[in-house]
């Protein structure tokens, strides 16, 4: 049976086994060893200037074992998943998938508590998991209040005029959240998947 290896133990900041662990455990990581540091990915990134390192440099940092610097980098969170780099990469490395996989690890291992993108991802997942759909009010509310009660109210009030105009224009409805047909079945499926993942990770940790 497949097992998910735990993130490498040892130092949280610097880990010589980190590259190997990424190659073996992050989706698409097996192609990462082909990276020739040409810069096509970072150069092609439409929001490259909004990234601290960019994918190319981040990949070199993985090889250098700079675990903490990689997992706290904003590069993995600011990726908009446009796939420009994936299409152009001369080595056909799935850059986007790798960044997403690193983001998952960063959350799981507690490296990204203050990342707004991570908070938003959690809000999105909350809505999908419980209702089978994204409800804009639910997602925004969850996201705003994940910054704390006061900050949540502040952000909510700041955006109230927009919300009212959306309601007026019929772009946001009042009443119960959107719910997919068979949302209960979806919840059961997700629960099962989470159970399997938990078991596999527990086995991986033992090995």
């Amino acid at each position: 049976m497949r097992t998910i290896a735990a993130a490498p133990a040892g130092s949280r900041t610097y880990d010589l086994n980190f590259a190997r662990w990424v190659y073996q455990n992050v989706d698409g990581g097996d192609r990462l060893s082909l990276c020739m540091q040409c810069g096509m990915c970072s150069g092609s990134c439409p929001i490259g200037t909004a990234m601290d390192h960019g994918p190319r440099k981040l990949f070199m940092m993985i090889r250098a074992g700079m675990k903490e610097a990689v997992l706290t980098s904003d590069t993995i969170w600011n990726c908009t998943q446009c796939y420009n780099c994936v299409v152009r990469c001369p080595r056909q490395i799935p850059v986007t998938n790798i960044l997403q996989g690193l983001a998952t690890v960063a959350v799981r291992e507690g490296y990204a508590p203050e990342q707004p993108t991570a908070k938003f991802a959690k809000a999105f997942w909350f809505s999908v998991k419980h209702f089978g759909r994204t409800d804009e009010r639910l997602v925004t509310a969850f996201f705003y209040f994940s910054f704390g009660l006061v900050e949540g109210i502040k952000r909510g009030l700041a955006n109230l005029p927009i919300a009212l105009r959306m309601i007026k224009a019929g772009r946001m409805h009042l009443g119960a959240p959107h719910r997919a047909k068979g949302a209960a079945d979806l919840r059961a499926i997700i629960a099962k998947a989470e159970e399997i993942e938990k078991r596999e990770r527990a086995q991986g940790a033992q090995q």
Binding site: C38, G39, S42, G43, G48, H53, G54, K57
Partner: peptide
Amino acid sequence: LHGEDTLTREL
């Protein structure tokens, strides 16, 4: 020409 200088990370 657009790209990234990989020695300086200059875009």
